[in-house]
Simulated assay, not measured.
Amino acid sequence: MGCDRNCGLIAGAVIGAVLAVFGGILMPVGDMLIENTIKKQVVLEEGTIAYQNWVKTGTEVYRQFWIFDVQNPQEVVVNSSRIKVKQRESEYIFSI
C-alpha cells in the first residue's frame, strides 16, 4: 500500500498544521508552568530546593563589605560637586 505524491503532500501539511497548533498551545502553557515552578521554588521555605541550597551550600561562602562615609553631602546636593568618600572600617569577611 503506497501513497502517491499528493497523498504525501496532504499528510505532510496535516502533520505540519497539527504540530503548529500543538506548538502554539504549548508555548504559553510551558512558559506558565516554568514560571509557576520558579515562583514556588525560589521562596526560602522548608521543603524547597532554594531553602536546601541556602541552608547547606556545600562550599565555603565569603562575603566582603566595605563601608564608605560621604564627606561632603551638602556640596553634592547643592552644587553637584564631586563626592568625597572615606572608607570607614576595614573590610569584613564572614564565613558561612
Rank of each mutant, 00 (worst) to 15 (best):
S80P: 01
Q71F: 10
G24C: 10
N6C: 06
Q52S: 11
C7I: 01
Q71G: 03
G16F: 00
A11V: 01
G47F: 05
T48P: 08
V29A: 08
L19H: 05
Q41K: 08
T57S: 11
G12L: 01
G58S: 03
F65L: 14
I25Q: 05
D69E: 06
G47D: 07
Q41M: 00
R63E: 14
M27V: 11
C7E: 01
W66C: 07
A13V: 02
G12P: 04
V42Y: 10
V77E: 03
A50H: 06
V29S: 05
I25G: 04
V21K: 14
V43E: 14
I10D: 04
G24I: 10
I25T: 09
S80D: 08
I38T: 07
G23W: 07
N79R: 06
Q74G: 08
I25K: 02
P73Q: 04
A11S: 08
D69P: 05
L44D: 12
I49P: 04
A13N: 04
G12V: 03
K86L: 07
R88F: 09
I67K: 14
S81N: 10
K39V: 06
K84W: 09
G12T: 00
F65S: 15
D31E: 13
I67M: 09
K56C: 09
V42A: 06
V70Q: 12
Q52F: 01
F65K: 15
A50I: 09
V18Q: 08
L33P: 02
I93E: 15
R88E: 01
V55Q: 03
P73T: 03
T37D: 13
E45H: 12
V61E: 12
Q41F: 02
I34D: 10
G16I: 01
K56P: 01
G8L: 09
V18H: 01
L33N: 14
V42F: 02
Y92I: 13
V78D: 05
P73I: 07
C7R: 04
Q71D: 05
V85P: 05
E45R: 13
E91S: 14
Q87D: 00
P28V: 07
Q71W: 06
K86M: 04
F65M: 11
S90C: 01
N36W: 10
V70I: 12
L9D: 00
R5V: 03
V29Q: 05
N36C: 06
N72S: 02
D31M: 12
Q41C: 13
A20H: 07
I49G: 03
V18R: 00
I34K: 11
G30E: 07
A11Q: 12
Q64V: 02
Q64H: 15
Q64P: 04
T59W: 07
Y92W: 15
T59E: 13
G8A: 13
V18L: 15
E91P: 15
E45A: 15
P73N: 10
V77T: 03
T37F: 15
P28W: 01
G23H: 00
S95M: 10
P28C: 01
I10M: 11
G24R: 01
F65C: 15
I96C: 09
G8E: 13
Q71I: 07
S81T: 05
V18N: 05
V61S: 03
E75W: 09
E35M: 13
E45T: 14
I49W: 08
N53F: 11
S90D: 08
N6L: 09
S95F: 09
G23D: 03
F94P: 01
E45V: 13
E35Q: 07
Q71Y: 02
L26E: 08
S80M: 00
N6F: 08
I10H: 15
S90Q: 08
P28G: 07
